[in-house]
């Protein structure tokens, strides 16, 4: 596919929309009807959210691993690393402090 036409690209958007819709309906349904509980539910919600974020990145923001100018992609992925350090560090430290008060 050297330069995909309008129709096939629109279909990709619709596919992304369908996937995102499914990944939204499932966790809302789980919580609304109380189908799961506790840790299992929390993990399911988290996994589905990450999956949906990946879907958005792939289908709406058009991030993929092969076609980018790599140096740009690296800088962007680097953000995730730093944010991970900062956010998880914060939760680790503040969580630990909370248990020791």
């Amino acid at each position: 596919m050297s330069d995909p036409d309008h129709r096939s690209e629109a279909r990709l958007y619709l596919a992304g929309f369908g996937l995102a819709l499914t990944l939204t309906l499932v966790p809302f349904g789980l919580v609304h009807w109380g189908l799961m509980q506790g840790k299992a539910l929390a993990i399911t919600i988290a996994v589905l959210a990450v999956a949906q974020i990946v879907v958005h990145l792939r289908f709406f923001l058009h991030i993929d691993l092969s076609r980018q100018k790599r140096e740009d992609l690296q800088l962007i992925l680097f953000t995730v690393l730093l944010l991970g350090i900062m956010a998880f560090g914060t939760l680790w430290i503040m969580g630990n402090l909370a248990t020791r008060m």
């Binding site: 900062m86 560090g89 430290i93 630990n96 402090l97 020791r100």
Partner: peptide, 20 residues
């Protein structure tokens, strides 16, 4: 990169555990 991994050394005495 390491500069983002060391911020806690400014508040060692705040009360978190020795492991941290």
């Amino acid at each position: 990169v390491l500069s983002f991994c060391v911020w806690l050394h400014h508040f060692f005495t705040m009360g978190q555990s020795a492991n941290i």
